[in-house]
Design a protein around this nucleic acid. Structure first.
Lengths: 234, 234
DNA sequence: CGCAAAATTGAATAGTCTCAAATGTAGTGG
DNA sequence: CCACTACATTTGAGACTATTCAATTTTGCG
C-alpha cells in the first residue's frame, strides 16, 4: 500500500498521468520499500519479479562479463522507472548507489494494470524512448571517444544533472556537485580503468579546468574548455 | 496509400496488432517508398518528420562526432520500426545499407493514430523495450570487450541473424552468411578501426575459426571456440 | 590514533591506432 | 575478353594511449 498524496515524485514519475481513482487502485498493487546503499534490487540473469518507481536515491544498472569486468549501462534517479515489464529475464543488475526509497509493484500486477490504462503505457513508452536515446548517445562515447573526451563529457553531464551552483572567491560562476559514486564506478560508466580516471581528473585539475575539494565533490572551473575537450582532442 | 494485404512483414511489424478496419485507416496515412543503398532517410540533428516500418533491406543508425568519427548505434531489419515518435530532433542518422523498401508515415499523423490505438502503442512499447535491452547489451561490448572479443561477438550475432546454413566438404555443419556491410562499417559497429577489424578476421581465419570465401561472406567453422573468445581473452 | 579502503602516482607493457604501402576486387570502356 | 581505373581490403612498421602491476598517499571510521 502506497500513499501517493505526499509522494515527492508524484508529478514526474509515470504515475503523473493517473487520476485519483486510478492512483487508488495502483497504490494498493504496490508498496514502498527502502534500500541501503549497495543493495541490489534486481540481479542480471534472474527473472525480475518486480518493477518500481524511484522515490529517492540513485541507482546503477550494470552488465558484466564472467571475469568480472563490469559496465554501468545506465544511471537512474528519482522519478525514473526500474525493471523490465513485458519480458522475463533481466539483462542487467539494478543496485542502489545511495540509500534509496522505491515504490515497487509485482511485475504481473503492474503489467495487468498497464494494459488497461493506455495513458500509463504511453507515459512509459515516452520514458523508454528517452532512455533509448540516452543509451545510444552513450554508445558514441563508449565506442569512439578518448579518455579525456570521456571524462569531459561525463563531468559536463553530471554538472547538469546534479548542479548545486555557487561562486568562487573571485565571484566567477561555477558549478559544484557531489558525485554519488567513487572512482571505480566512474570507470565503469566510461569504460575505463580506475587509474585512467584518476589520472585524467588530476590533469584537468592541473590545467585549472576543475577543482576537486574532496574525492566526492567536483567544481567546474572552465565549462567551455571542457566542452571543447568533450568532442575532440584539442 | 499502402496495400497491407500482400505485405511480407504484416505479422511481424507493429501493424500485426491491427484489425482490417484499422489497417484500412493507417494504410491511408502512409505510403511506401524505395530507397537505394546509401540513401539517408533521417539526418542526425534534424527534425525527423517521418516514422517508418522496414519492409525490406537493412539500415544503420549512426551518431557522429564533429571530426568524422562515427559510431553505428543500431542495425535495423525488415519489420523493425524506424524513427522517433513523440520527440522532435533525431539524435542519429538512418541510412540504407542495401536497397530497401519502407512504409513511411508523417510523424504527426502516426502519433495521432497511435494515441487512439493502445494496442499499437503497446506493441511499439514492447519493441522499444527490446531495442533498449539490445542497446544496453551492446554497451557492455563497446565499453569492456577487447578487439578479438568484439569480433567474435559480432560474428556470432550476425550468424544468428543472417544464417543461410550449409555444410563443408567433410559434412560438418557450418553457418555461412553474407554481411550487408563492408569492413569500415564493421569497425563503426564495434568501435574499432578498419585495420584492426581486418587483422582480427585474418587471425580468426588463420586459426581455422572462420572462412572468408569473399569479402562479403563469412562461414563459422568453430562456433564453440568463437563463443569462448567472445567472453574472455583465452 | 591506527587501521582498512579508496585514490593517486609511477614505470613498464600490451593493445590498438596511425600512417604508409601493397594487394585484391568490381566495374567500365575499348 | 582484357586492360584500366577506382575503391576496398590487407599487411607492415612505428607511435601512442590506456592498461597492468606495484608502491605510495590520502581519506574515513572505529
Amino acid at each position: 500500500m502506497i500513499s501517493c498524496d505526499s509522494c515527492v515524485v508524484r508529478n514526474r514519475a509515470i504515475c503523473s498521468v493517473l487520476d485519483s481513482v486510478e492512483l487508488g487502485v495502483i497504490s494498493r498493487i504496490g508498496h514502498t520499500i527502502t534500500l541501503d546503499k549497495g543493495q541490489t534490487l534486481i540481479w542480471e540473469g534472474d527473472d525480475a519479479l518486480v518493477v518500481a518507481n524511484i522515490v529517492s536515491g540513485v541507482f546503477k544498472l550494470t552488465s558484466s562479463l564472467d571475469d568480472g569486468r563490469e559496465q554501468i549501462i545506465s544511471l537512474a534517479y528519482p522519478s525514473d522507472f526500474l525493471g523490465r515489464p513485458f519480458g522475463s529475464m533481466s539483462e542487467y543488475s539494478v543496485t542502489a548507489l545511495t540509500d534509496a526509497k522505491l515504490c515497487v509493484f509485482p511485475k504481473g500486477d503492474f503489467e495487468g494494470f498497464a494494459r488497461t490504462h493506455p495513458d500509463l503505457e504511453h507515459k512509459l513508452l515516452e520514458k523508454t524512448l528517452d532512455e533509448l536515446d540516452r543509451a545510444r548517445r552513450w554508445m558514441l562515447l563508449l565506442g569512439r571517444k578518448t579518455a579525456p573526451e570521456k571524462l569531459a563529457s561525463f563531468l559536463l553531464e553530471m554538472s547538469q544533472k546534479l548542479d548545486g551552483s555557487g561562486c568562487d572567491a573571485a565571484g566567477k560562476q561555477l558549478t559544484t556537485f557531489e558525485l554519488p559514486f567513487g572512482r571505480q564506478q566512474i570507470a565503469d560508466i566510461l569504460g575505463l580503468t580506475i587509474e585512467t580516471v584518476s589520472r585524467q581528473l588530476s590533469q584537468f585539475k592541473a590545467k585549472g579546468l576543475i577543482d576537486i575539494p574532496d574525492r566526492r565533490n567536483v567544481s567546474i572551473r572552465d565549462a567551455a574548455q571542457l566542452a571543447m575537450l568533450s568532442e575532440a582532442t584539442a
